[in-house]
Design a protein around this nucleic acid. Structure first.
Lengths: 351, 351
DNA sequence: CCCCTTTATACTCACTTTGAGCATATAAGG
DNA sequence: CCTTATATGCTCAAAGTGAGTATAAAGGGG
């Protein structure tokens, strides 16, 4: 832009549009989430080992065609519907990534650029065939994020030692002691080292940290010099990688969903019309990767007016039959719509 | 897309990139916020009345050039710096809007499409000349959002009556009673009618509601049929309109900032190195458009460890001198970074 | 100098929320 | 009739929150 600043006029914008060096293609990427069998699942498109992409999963995605669809979200819904027969309920835009060399290195024709817009979508579980797509437990891609059975061993056994090396390493182009301190703080806050509490919502920060420490295969693939040793094959694999920047988008989705579930009633998008509080709790726990205190969870859900009793009982596995509840849609019109704010239970006794 | 679904391969994406009907230009829009004289200010580029755009303000914006800048945010920082000499501290991506006919109607050359990415940026106040840009109190664009002097009269005198008409109006293509109920609920939740509490974070929802009710000049400009009467000139003007979808982006910025200030220490990005708690409070109140309880505000800020005393006193206007504080940057490395969670003070006595 | 206004700051108090645990109830299966 | 599950009701202490009282320290006008 020459000096459009003071006057970003109609002409200058139109001119800009004409200049092909500013033209990009928008890729719409969907992180479609469900919970089944008490496990959080993400819809992926698996690839053959043989096709040169290393057999990595991808999120479903498609280009945005501005002539065909009035908004980005309409574009997304339309081709997800077309490709997977899934009717998405809840859809939320996550973030727009334009990083050169990150998602795009292997996808772009020379002289072209792809900017990817990530979306989070929630859907009830079901078993229809999905035209080659498949549900995958999202903790396969993020094994360090599942604390439901206690702290995942991979953290203390693999991640923290590798990160300590990275902290100790001289970083280029900044005062060494300062840089070390920053790296150490990042590690502490992300992975709860030295008494810092685990924060389930930091999934994205953790992914970004592991990426910039060169511990993820995506970093090696993108050509980051500090990650090239991963190609030697003897380094430990941290979670299942994905194509392009899709694991980053999934991490964004996890962070956003884990945060949102606490102040908006989005968990119910994943539940069947009637459910027991136990099932609701297990769904929430699957997403958070944490156990919550059972009695307090019930108190919260009931006091917030989020559910109402159906009177029907659930003949379920295990102990005493539980009453079935349904989501009280009316809450959306009462209060400014609450969520499931809950602390993880420290002890394992009451979960 | 034909059936890329099952296999969104490298080829199909590259092909897509080549097809010009999918090429778009990305516009980067910056909502640059500061607080001065206890008023929240937004940086705008004013336009002459005469140039056919109606003399509307615009946010600074520029196209993203993927060849020149590695990421969207770098692109944004670079041309903001270039145009305004402002060095932005805090920058956060807000949302990506692709709505045809909303921001774009008047900007696009035929066959071209602009997708706009909105950013929120915070900067300390200063008085440099800004090459034709100017700071404007953001409540000029949103007069209903400023409750610091009590409920803005425009709500009961103008907005709610007009919205009631809109609620009563037959809406097309849906069961009338149901549609009416939905419209009524939206009005109630957004504007706090019938005992619903005012929610300062709903700035975006309120803007969208007024837009779809046809009460904003932008709606008329975009050709919405229910807003055409605004061109007759006798209808009341609800806030100062902006070019393209810029008021929508500003509303997004307000909502995000009002929410974020409560759980991240972003308010300090707007403060000078040393400040009194009174100044901090006034800054927060300016952004929230609400008064907060003074004593509780101090308790919160101090207990959260967000500030530390400097020992210096402020020789200020008014009463007893106040001690100056500074932001304790270390909090960022202790807890997972708290904010200023505070309830508005009901009474006006202690604000 | 005294009084009034203004802001600063310390402290109290009732009430709610939250984290944790105890106790009992009701099923299934041996 | 045990044991093992899960369901559900209830208590309790600690922490947090909303609102207010009380006192301190400045300036300005008489």
């Amino acid at each position: 832009m020459e000096k459009a600043p003071a006057k970003p006029s109609v002409q200058s914008a139109a001119e800009a549009a004409m200049r092909s060096d500013k033209a990009v293609v928008i890729g719409l990427n969907a992180a479609i989430v469900t919970v089944s069998d008490y496990g959080p699942k993400i819809l992926v498109v698996p690839h053959d080992e043989a096709d040169g992409t290393g057999g990595w999963d991808a999120l479903p995605f498609g280009p945005f065609n501005p002539l065909e669809h009035r908004t980005l979200e309409i574009g997304l819904r339309s081709w997800v519907q077309e490709q997977t027969q899934l009717e998405l309920g809840y859809v939320e835009q996550l973030y727009t990534f334009g990083d050169r060399g990150r998602h795009s290195l292997e996808i772009e024709a020379p002289g072209e650029h792809v900017v990817s817009v990530g979306y989070l979508a929630l859907t009830r579980s079901h078993d229809e065939t999905l035209k080659g797509a498949a549900w995958r437990d999202w903790y396969q891609h993020f094994p360090w994020e599942d604390w439901r059975e206690g702290k995942p061993p991979i953290i203390d056994q693999v991640i923290v030692p590798l990160l300590r090396e990275w902290v100790a390493k001289q970083s280029e182009a900044s005062p060494p002691e300062l840089a070390r301190g920053k790296r150490r703080d990042r590690m502490r806050l992300c992975f709860g080292v030295d008494g810092v509490a685990w924060d389930d919502e930091k999934a994205l920060e953790r992914y970004e940290l592991l990426y910039s420490a060169g511990l993820l295969l995506e970093a090696a693939r993108d050509g980051r010099p500090n990650a090239q040793h991963l190609f030697q094959g003897k380094a430990p694999q941290l979670g299942r990688p994905m194509q392009f920047d899709h694991r980053r988008i999934l991490a964004t989705a996890m962070s956003r969903l884990r945060a949102k579930i606490k102040y908006r009633p989005v968990a119910f998008e994943l539940m069947p019309p009637a459910f027991t509080l136990y099932e609701l709790q297990k769904t929430v726990e699957a997403l958070l990767g944490l156990h919550v205190h059972k009695q307090n969870f019930r108190r919260l859900v009931e006091n917030a007016g989020l559910v109402e009793r159906t009177g029907r009982m659930s003949t379920r596995t295990g102990g005493r039959p539980a009453e079935q509840f349904r989501f009280r849609r009316e809450v959306l019109n009462e209060r400014p719509a609450p969520g499931l704010k809950l602390a993880p239970s420290r002890s394992r006794a009451n979960s």
